[in-house]
Design a protein around this nucleic acid. Structure first.
Lengths: 164, 164
DNA sequence: GGGCTATGGTTGACGTATCAACAAGGTGGG
DNA sequence: CCCACCTTGTTGATACGTCAACCATAGCCC
């Protein structure tokens, strides 16, 4: 993995080649298609959008299946506004409920309903199967190693100072 | 790149490991963030959305900077309905225009306005720079090789029969 | 030609994401 | 206590993507 004799370690190199551009486009297209496939599979199997699933996952993993709205937003890295709109829709569908927070009258506690919990648990197994089928089954162990390495480089490039 | 002595060539392997799942989540998150960054940069620099850019690119590369609506849809792989909505918005902004097709009275020809052409040409250089800065500069040549290989595997897995 | 089906394109409804503005409750310094 | 300021969460406007329904024309077969 170590560089050979070529220089230009961390210095931005010359120009971007057309091959590098093509690889970016391919990466963008293929990941978009994977998202689309997995999303519509999830919708078909469980009537949940990927966004629903993300919210439910965060709640299931939280203590007592409930979270302050802003903690939930921080957990899944959403803007508060987006979360508020989405929680409104999920509440209408009976997946979650909100109630006033006892310790801060501005706040809201979000918690799972039984229906939300059932939906999440019913969705997980088919969703994992779909990820395996469409993504994991395509790659060899060596390719996973290489991809992990690449993703760490990209992550480090986007957020240079976040540890680990 | 050839497999060692391990078996299980094309047969779906055992279970998906949690590491493989984590790599998928990381891939999805990082590519989403890259799209977001590049998209908002494009918007800031040129007041174009990524979708606008894709449409303009297809038109610029077409003969005479014009295309039948359905050819355009095929070129960029969009549903006709999505394209129709988007062309409506782009037309309101003066980026493109539509006119009846002389050889097929159902059809519509889409063509670039001067404004659309200028917007596209002004957008390209900063957009390329942004892709270089946020994506290409993060990776080594070896990583590009590996990523290309991985993407071809994924592509082949998603569309087994499309040549090259 | 008359009718059937396929194709090209538009529309409306709905869910979703982002932005800016906002209301209302907290917090801390004077 | 009071006021300025921060945080929490909601709302409305706008843009976007998908789906199903739709209209008009083209192509075809009798």
């Amino acid at each position: 993995m170590a560089e050979g004799g070529e220089v230009t370690g961390t210095v931005p190199r010359r120009r971007m080649t057309s091959r590098e551009l093509a690889i970016w486009r391919s990466l963008a297209d293929i990941t978009a298609e994977l998202r689309r496939i997995l999303g519509s599979q999830l919708q078909q199997d469980s009537n949940l959008s990927p966004a629903d699933y993300e919210v439910l996952l965060a709640l299931v993993e939280a203590d007592g299946c409930q979270l302050r709205s802003s903690e939930l937003a921080a957990t899944i890295d959403w803007e508060r506004s987006r979360l508020s709109h989405h929680l409104g829709r999920m509440e209408r569908r009976g997946l979650i409920r909100r109630q006033d927070c006892p310790t801060d009258s501005r706040g809201a506690e979000v918690f799972l309903t039984d229906e939300g919990s059932n939906a999440f648990h019913g969705a997980t197994a088919p969703h994992m199967r779909a990820i395996k089928k469409h993504f994991a089954d395509a790659l060899t162990l060596e390719q996973f190693e290489a991809l992990d390495d690449i993703l760490q480089s990209l992550q480090g490039h986007l957020h240079p100072d976040s540890r680990s």
